[in-house]
Amino acid sequence: MSDTLTFLKNFIRSPTQVGAIAPSGRQLVDRMTDWIQWESARNVVEYGPGTGVFTEAIAGRLHPEARFFAIERSPELAATTRQRCPGVTVVEDSASNVQALCRQHDMQNVDAILCGLPWASFPDSLQQEIMDATLAVLRPGGQFVTFAYWQGVILPAGQRFRRRLDQNFSSVQHSPTAWANLPPAFVYRCVR
């Protein structure tokens, strides 16, 4: 089954967990990964790899001494990511459990988190739970990147998420729009 069909099937089954109808395109992948300081990042985590398009790019940029794992709730999407990126550890769990998962992977703190979660689809309680877990593992000065679809920015949950970023990070910027993505999106680039 193609990545697009796998993604669409998971979106239809769980729209609040998948949040998109198609995998991210190359332009958005580049916007997500270009900003990370790969030369110094030794502990890297990905939330919600989906079909592994970001995972593949991350794996290709990691420093040889870096440790990396991805967290995916959907067993089908986790299997797809493992097939695309056989050398990457993909854990079937929730990003809200990142502290315990980091301990299991011998990560004291995390230098970079790349996130493909659909924040604008999440209720306030889940946004807060995942953000608290993220802040518990991301070191001061650590990098957090996530993307947003332009139509989600106007939703109350999208606006709430932006406020949450501003409250919890010393710097929050956004990339130019990836117009070639379906749907168009931009990347929040945050420093703890």
Score class of each variant (00 low, 15 high):
144 F>H: 10
115 C>M: 04
126 L>W: 10
124 D>M: 14
138 L>G: 15
148 A>L: 14
131 M>S: 01
129 E>T: 09
142 G>P: 11
143 Q>W: 09
133 A>W: 01
146 T>V: 03
111 D>S: 10
128 Q>F: 02
113 I>P: 13
143 Q>H: 10
120 A>P: 01
107 M>F: 06
130 I>H: 13
116 G>N: 14
139 R>C: 04
119 W>N: 00
120 A>H: 05
140 P>I: 07
136 A>R: 08
131 M>R: 00
119 W>I: 00
132 D>T: 06
147 F>D: 03
127 Q>T: 02
140 P>E: 09
147 F>N: 04
136 A>T: 03
121 S>G: 09
124 D>P: 05
135 L>D: 06
137 V>Y: 03
109 N>S: 09
107 M>E: 04
143 Q>Y: 08
147 F>T: 03
123 P>M: 05
128 Q>N: 01
119 W>Y: 00
118 P>E: 10
133 A>H: 01
115 C>R: 04
114 L>F: 03
141 G>A: 15
145 V>W: 07
120 A>S: 09
125 S>W: 03
138 L>W: 13
138 L>D: 14
148 A>N: 13
131 M>Y: 00
136 A>P: 03
139 R>L: 04
124 D>H: 13
107 M>H: 05
134 T>W: 13
143 Q>F: 10
119 W>E: 00
109 N>D: 11
112 A>C: 11
121 S>Y: 13
111 D>V: 08
118 P>C: 11
116 G>V: 15
124 D>N: 13
114 L>P: 02
127 Q>S: 02
107 M>R: 07
123 P>S: 05
123 P>K: 07
124 D>A: 14
130 I>N: 12
122 F>D: 00
126 L>E: 06
137 V>I: 05
115 C>I: 03
129 E>G: 08
107 M>T: 02
111 D>F: 07
137 V>F: 03
143 Q>A: 08
125 S>E: 01
136 A>W: 05
141 G>N: 15
124 D>G: 12
122 F>R: 00
114 L>I: 10
113 I>N: 14
122 F>P: 00
133 A>S: 06
125 S>R: 00
140 P>V: 06
121 S>A: 14
140 P>M: 10
128 Q>Y: 01
139 R>Q: 08
120 A>K: 06
145 V>P: 02
